[in-house]
Design a protein around this nucleic acid. Structure first.
Lengths: 326, 326
DNA sequence: TTGTAAGCGTTATCAC
DNA sequence: GTGATAACGCTTACAA
């Protein structure tokens, strides 16, 4: 493939002049420029970005480590982040960690070798101790010491959910979440603030007794059997806040199978919102996160890293999304 | 950041020896190796992959250009392709073209500059004329002259759908697809074979008159109003094959709104299959594509490119997925 | 076994 | 305005 040297030779100029022409930097006489541009077309020259990265010591690549692009919300997030970064002149590498700690770590290692300009980290694994804090990392929904993070306003979301259930007259309330990490790690994600905000708001309204079901994060989708049994053992419950729409969907199916009418008998609120277009049934009432706003926030931090400016955490607002289940 | 030279100096050896140690190539005396490895740890040296790409003229990056990772099937495909490529030692760059021809092209251009080792192209845009056929491209669900492609066995899928509707006793059959490209381009995707296989099998069974509704590809999700009207103007229809589950979902909602019972009055089959976990209603009966098999096929072609072996098209089998709508 | 040096394709600094 | 040339960090003949 033609290089800058070939172009220079053919045009009878030095490589520096060609470089200036390509990059629109420094002075180049008009005729020289035109000649060079003609030759570039002629030989089909395409600048080598790798060589450029080499000299400039940056490659304009950002990597996104996430558990699974199959998860609908993550897929959306991925889309918006890529779009935003593209507009800022970055390319994006995607790294599916499949929720395995070793894969998280081996990716971080790989990305170090590749000298990516920034890493977006979305993980529930216990990687804190092995994280090189000098790396330009931005974390989503998770706080690491010394690493800036972006997250939705989970606390406010929990409050919203509580307010809605109270307004609807619910008396026996339950929380269900798959963010308990106690079994094999001691990480605590920002996501747990959904529960905290929820419980606080209930308490403010005199509701102290809430049935709190938490279980360890699995694949983000399916609920372990014993949790289903726990739900059934509380027929008095008339309002449930679930930590995600995926969990809410499972819970609703369980309740309906056991003869409950949703939302008449039990109101159920989820978290995530947005659309899921292959949906023939009820729309889940939910606290919505905005993947677009989140993407903008992440991108903002990355640009600041790039410009060597000071970076700060960003909390993105959530919204109440009306549906058919509460 | 420490470079190979720093390590060499500190270890009192030449850089070639360090390089040999890192890459496990050539002879290095055991003690020398051990010393070098110690120093590497000491100074926190991480090989620079960019420099390596420079020398080796390959960077082990594969790019995936696709319309939208938000689309559930694409999100799944993305996941499996990434996983497969990771196992083969490749990193993956993701490029959302948002269905814009210019973005497709500007990405291809970008990837040329970045000297990626292969490009996976998933597009419905008319880019044929501007495609550099010397590039290592593998196309999904789309035939370009001189470019190897992977696709599901769409024709067999169409046949399966026809067989099922016939078995269920349908007499007045309709096809609905959003793959008509006539309006602004003249591309024809592999996807149109779903319709062809479907119609052929019906004809073999004496069913000649099929109501064929095709409309231009939009965002893969929503159906234009006039198509909804067309559907309503055929109340005699009792069996419908839709080109995707997304389309099927819209069609089913339309029919139910107009008082039809699914599947009692009308049987509806979609295409894509797999799971969509936030689904509280009926499961769509569908012809399933296997994102995992597709990913393996794509990866197989890429590895062949890499080894400079001859590449060939690969057709992946589909399967019938029972659901509640047919 | 090991070290020297060429080469990969750029950009940027300095003379001219 | 322009052209040598050093530098970026690595791999790999080739020599020793």
């Amino acid at each position: 493939m033609a290089s800058i040297i070939d172009v220079a030779k053919k045009a009878g100029v030095g490589i520096a002049t060609v470089s200036r022409t390509i990059n629109n930097s420094g002075y180049v006489k008009k005729e020289t420029r035109e000649k060079i541009e003609r030759i570039i077309k002629e030989v089909g020259y395409v600048p080598n970005e790798i060589a450029r990265s080499m000299t400039l010591q940056k490659n304009n690549i950002v990597a996104f480590i996430l558990p699974n692009s199959t998860h609908l919300f993550f897929g959306e997030l991925l889309y918006y982040v890529e779009e935003e970064l593209y507009n800022q002149g970055f390319k994006m590498m995607i790294c599916n960690s499949s929720m395995q700690t070793e894969k998280d770590l081996s990716y971080i290692d790989l990305l170090k070798k590749n000298r990516v300009d920034a890493i977006i980290l979305l993980t529930n694994n216990d990687v804190e101790s092995q994280l090189d804090k000098r790396l330009p990392i931005v974390s989503f929904d998770r706080k690491f010491d010394g690493v800036p993070f972006v997250s939705s306003d989970n606390h406010a979301g929990g409050v919203m959910a509580a307010k809605h259930l109270i307004k609807k007259g619910c008396k026996n309330i339950m929380f269900i979440g798959d963010d308990a990490q106690g079994l094999h790690t001691n990480v605590s994600t920002e996501v747990s603030k959904r529960r905290i905000g929820f419980l606080e708001e209930l308490k403010r309204n005199g509701i102290d007794k809430v049935i709190n079901i938490e279980y360890p994060l699995g694949n983000y989708i399916y609920i372990p059997d014993y949790v289903h049994e726990l739900i059934q053992s509380h027929p008095e419950v008339d309002g449930i806040f679930c930590i995600s729409d995926a969990v809410a969907a499972e819970v609703i199916l369980n309740l309906e199978k056991n003869g409950k009418k949703i939302p008449e008998d039990v109101k159920v609120i989820g978290f995530d919102g947005g659309r899921s277009f292959i949906n023939l049934g009820k729309r889940i009432t939910s606290i919505g996160q905005s993947p677009k706003l989140i993407a903008e926030a992440i991108s903002e931090i990355i640009v600041k890293y790039y410009l060597k400016e000071k970076v700060e955490n960003i909390i993105v607002p959530v919204y109440f999304q009306n549906g058919d289940t509460a």
